[in-house]
Design a protein around this nucleic acid. Structure first.
Length: 490
RNA sequence: CGGGGUGUAGUAUAUCGGUAGUAUACUUGUUUUGGGAACAAGAGGGCUGGGUUCGAUUCCCAGCACCCCGACCA
């Protein structure tokens, strides 16, 4: 580690530009520093909005590619609906309008005059889509209808935070209609599992799947399920959600079909989504005080070959590096970056470390002489010398090892910081320390509100795999049949 | 939106009611090149708008932005 760089005292050099705020000192500042150092995003000159820079957008593209393929495999098709929604549509579902009213942006003027009816910039697309779905669906033979769209949405949030909560964000929203409640619920659960799979297999983020409490439910849903992840400071991040909407929307948007008996019936619906917030979660799960760490399976650049050599060697080393890069790309099918810029080695090393590239390969005259290359892991910093004819295999296995190691570290942290509390004092203490707290709760919104007022913690998840256990609510003392997860959240 | 804090160069900062300094980054040149190199030259700065003052980056007011704490949320 390079502590001396971070400490900016007399006598030591000022590397403040290069170093980032240590996590332990100020977690928020650290998070922003990582984003800045890696070149992922920056604040836009528009309130609460974010500019995603090319390197950050590459992560989003990687996410899109994997999820989109998975969605299609499960029968979902992509479509696109308008950005602008007539206000009357949004107002139709009571809970929905109530939930979103405070955060919608409304267009009142266009074409040089005031609009007869204001247009809402979509905060989500249930209303406009279901208005149209009612025309698309006539018979049970039209079901299930499985639609997804990749889009931007706008929510006028009070406290924006890069990636985690911005006024405009990119996401995917899936919307389905089914003939039975059971089918709809199965689909909602199925997509939840897709998110869990994606989080764990690709982003190396261990997650918790479960149901949301009444007060944390989506505006207009019958049931809300979610995938929750733990960040390095112990706070929870809602990674993705999936809702069983029941017939709440189909009844107001008249999404109905003729069943096999020839009777009119309202459709059973779901919606599910995940957003650029996942990138924020990715950063806060794996990165360190040197900058970003990307899990190999999501990294747009798998490895970087850094050339090292004095002027006399440069032409030769450059050529060798480029040849090696092409060879390795061909052998592994991975994106291998070759950095032969005329800079000092250290400068190049640090740059790619900040960007979180999983593996660095150092190539200089010594390595060329011995037909080898120095391989350095971003996650552990471990350095090994690898023979060039074994490089492709070693690189692939190392990338797998990094992927696994990142997951294991995150899993160990989640396990270690998930604790049981059986009384109010312990509960408060464990929440303050930044844990996921397993506690009994009487199940009422009132008690949840009291707990939130006192500790700022909420029910993050009622986990599916939680075993039944008799107990008493940690706050009210009333009986409870199982523990739920409480935590502070982003 | 409520409470608190901060706004000086790309970044981090110093000083100050009277010519704004340093480090680093950047540009150019020379020497360098296996973990943030050395020397020289160069370019770059007081959030915005009012007020007080002979004079404001400094003091006062407002706005805006950012950060922290709430309320809200993917």
């Amino acid at each position: 580690m390079d502590e001396e760089i971070k400490v900016n005292k007399e006598g030591s050099k000022d590397y403040s530009e290069k170093a980032i705020t240590p996590r332990a000192t100020d977690y928020s500042a650290w998070y922003l520093d990582v984003i800045d150092a890696a070149g992922l995003a920056e604040h836009a000159p528009v309130k609460g909005c974010m500019i995603i820079k090319p390197y950050g957008y590459a992560i989003w593209e990687a996410i899109q590619k994997i999820l989109d393929k998975k969605f299609k495999e499960s029968g979902v098709e992509n479509a696109y609906f308008p950005l602008l929604i007539p206000e009357r549509l949004l107002k139709r579902e009571e809970d929905h309008v109530e939930g979103f009213a405070p955060e919608v942006a409304v267009v009142t003027h266009a074409g040089g005059k005031e609009l007869e009816e204001p247009l809402v910039i979509r905060p989500t697309s249930e209303t406009i889509m279901y208005e149209v779905f009612s025309k698309w669906i006539h018979s049970y033979r039209d079901l299930p209808l499985l639609i997804n769209q990749w889009a931007n949405v706008v929510r006028w949030e009070m406290r924006p935070r890069l990636f985690l909560r911005t006024t405009e964000f990119l996401w995917q929203e899936g919307h389905t209609v089914h003939a039975t409640d059971a089918d709809a619920d199965a689909r909602a659960r199925q997509m939840l599992e897709v998110y869990k799979w994606f989080a764990e297999e690709y982003l190396a983020m261990p997650v918790l799947v479960g149901q949301k409490s009444e007060s944390e439910k989506f505006a207009g849903a019958a049931k809300t399920y979610s995938v929750e992840a733990m960040m390095q400071d112990g706070k929870a991040l809602q990674f993705a959600t999936s809702h069983n909407l029941g017939q709440n929307f189909s009844k107001v948007f008249d999404v109905k079909f003729l069943n096999e008996k020839g009777e009119n019936e309202f459709g059973w619906q779901t919606s599910w989504g995940c957003s650029t917030r996942m990138i924020g979660g990715l950063i806060m799960t794996h990165s360190d005080d040197k900058g970003l760490i990307l899990p190999p399976r999501i990294a747009s650049i798998s490895a970087v070959i850094v050339s090292i050599g004095s002027e006399a060697d440069r032409a030769r080393v450059t050529e060798e590096a480029q040849t090696l890069g092409m060879k390795l790309t061909a052998e592994t099918g991975l994106n291998i970056k070759v950095d032969v810029r005329d800079k000092r080695p250290g400068d190049k090393f640090y740059e790619w470390e900040k960007k979180g590239v999983p593996v660095r390969l150092e190539l200089g005259p010594k390595d060329i002489a011995s037909d080898s290359v120095v391989m350095v892991r971003r996650d552990t910093g471990e350095k090994t010398t690898v023979a060039q004819d074994e490089l492709a295999e070693t690189l692939k296995s190392t990338l797998e090892a990094i992927q696994k190691n990142l997951f294991d570290i995150a899993l160990a942290r989640k396990n270690e910081r998930t604790k049981k509390a059986d009384n109010w004092e312990d509960f408060k203490k464990l929440i303050d320390e930044g844990n996921f707290v397993l506690a009994h709760w009487d199940g009422t919104p009132e008690t949840e509100a009291e707990i939130k007022a006192d500790t700022n913690a909420t029910v993050r998840s009622i986990p599916f795999d939680m075993e039944k256990e008799e107990g008493v609510c940690v706050k009210s003392g009333k009986p409870s049949k199982m523990r739920v997860i409480f935590a502070r959240s982003y």
